[in-house]
Amino acid sequence: MIPLKELLQPHRILLMALFAGFVLWCAVSLRWDWIPQYLPLAAHGLWTTLWILLASIALGFPLAMLLGLAQAVGPWYLAWPAKGLCTVIRGTPLLLQIWLLYYGLGSLFPQFPWIRGSELWPYLRQAWPYALTALTLSYAGYEGEVMRGAFSSVAKGQLEAARAFGMPRRTIFRRIWLPQAVRNVLPTLGGETILQLKATPLIATITVIDIYAVSSRVRSDTFIVYEPLLLLALVYIVIALVIGQGFAWLERRVPR
């Protein structure tokens, strides 16, 4: 955070006063009367955005670890497919991947009677499983590349020392290798998590009602253009700030 003394320089006070004036102007002369009506929907949308973000990270990170390990130390028959998957995911637009899963798989599944008869079918008819799958795979693809670098950046001496003490391989991984690898890339992971947040509005294109979809709904219902968009941008800035602060806190807690 910026110390108070730096914040109170004359030109910054002027800029802040101008900004406060802009906010006041927005509050007075723009239309905000639609907010109460759409508040419940917006809360629901915000909740969808947040849980899809958290779930895709929670599911994607273990996958990324596997992809990173396979590329860093795996034999060629694991390393090549992992590298290929990362290249394809990072080399094509996420929007295309989401549409491929939703429209492609979504039009393929109903052709198989056993899928339609299965217990999963009520879920497969909804949009969010496809959204979650696409975002999870995307996070795994980008982070797999990050984790590859992280795993191979841990000093060899650390692993040799652990082996010399007779630690089993699982314990070495859990207590020496993984913690140091994650620590080295913590700042990168913070940035990537914000990028993942910025990818979530794409799921609105396959009918998932997230906070972005709510703002589009307001725009098409009331023909108010700027107000919902400004508010939406503010919501994303706040979430990004929270993520940034969270990772900064995590970085301070981790011993160097």
Binding site: I194, K198, A199, P201, Y212, L230, L232, A233, Y236
Partner: peptide, 12 residues
């Protein structure tokens, strides 16, 4: 610019 999703920026 780096905190707001590209899709929202594109619309604005």
């Amino acid at each position: 610019i780096r905190a707001v999703p590209e899709l929202v920026l594109i619309l604005i």
